[in-house]
């Protein structure tokens, strides 16, 4: 059995569930629909098979996740990934952080920002706009939230629009959700095969 990873990495690990995934062979029509299983697409990650235990939530959460991370306009996709990664650093979701830091790296064509985040965590020192984004998302991710009006002012001072700030709130908040599933219901383990690519989308 592979060892559980505790340190942040941009190498996307595998995810080992702590509870039983549903058995596809016994899935209900509602579960198959939520999983988007078709005769030509039968590959579903363990993470999604675990979430299918609560199919009513999974069914509505998947489109919400995609809208918040990928919809058009507003905050650029790379900066939404900073929000997602900041939450994942606070909540120490090594799997989510790996997926979203590496996605940031691809989108921004830059590895230095996430190197700093992984080296120094919440205290990472970044360029002004990235710092305002990362600090706000970090503080919003505390329980209870520690974000304040000054954090919002710093975002506005970098020239961010209301639409952009709203998208940042949404992406950081969404990972308050995702981290509490991914980090709570399973463990990140070193990749053994080459089938981890299917889990890329936050495990979707």
């Amino acid at each position: 059995m592979s060892a559980v990873l505790h340190e942040f990495t941009t190498e996307i690990p595998e995810w080992r569930p702590r509870v039983k995934p549903i058995d596809l062979a016994e899935a209900t029509p509602e579960q198959l629909d939520a999983l988007k299983v078709t005769p030509s697409n039968t590959k579903v990650s363990d993470y999604v098979l675990v979430l299918a235990n609560d199919v009513e939530t999974l069914k509505v959460r998947t489109p919400l996740f995609n809208a918040i991370m990928y919809n058009k306009g507003g905050l650029g996709r790379a900066e939404r990934e900073i929000g997602a990664t900041a939450a994942s650093v606070v909540n120490r979701c090594v799997f989510c952080a790996a997926v979203h830091a590496s996605r940031y790296n691809q989108l921004a064509k830059d590895e230095t920002l996430m190197q700093r985040v992984f080296a120094d965590g919440e205290r990472a020192e970044l360029e002004p706009r990235a710092a305002a984004i990362f600090n706000f998302a970090t503080r919003l991710s505390k329980a209870p939230s520690e974000a304040d009006a000054d954090d919002i002012r710093q975002l506005r001072d970098t020239g961010m629009s209301e639409e952009e700030i709203l998208d940042l709130i949404l992406s950081a908040s969404l990972f308050g959700w995702a981290n509490r599933l991914m980090h709570v219901l399973g463990d990140p383990v070193a990749k053994t095969g080459n089938d981890a690519a299917e889990q890329r989308n936050e495990g979707r």
């Binding site: 609560d54 209870p144 709570v184």
Partner: peptide, 26 residues
Amino acid sequence: ADIVRLAELNAFLAYQARLLAGLRLM
């Protein structure tokens, strides 16, 4: 299955509380 339901309820609330906190700050 109930552990997943419980985690989802917790996780949804975490999202909702932060979304609301962020909007109020704005």
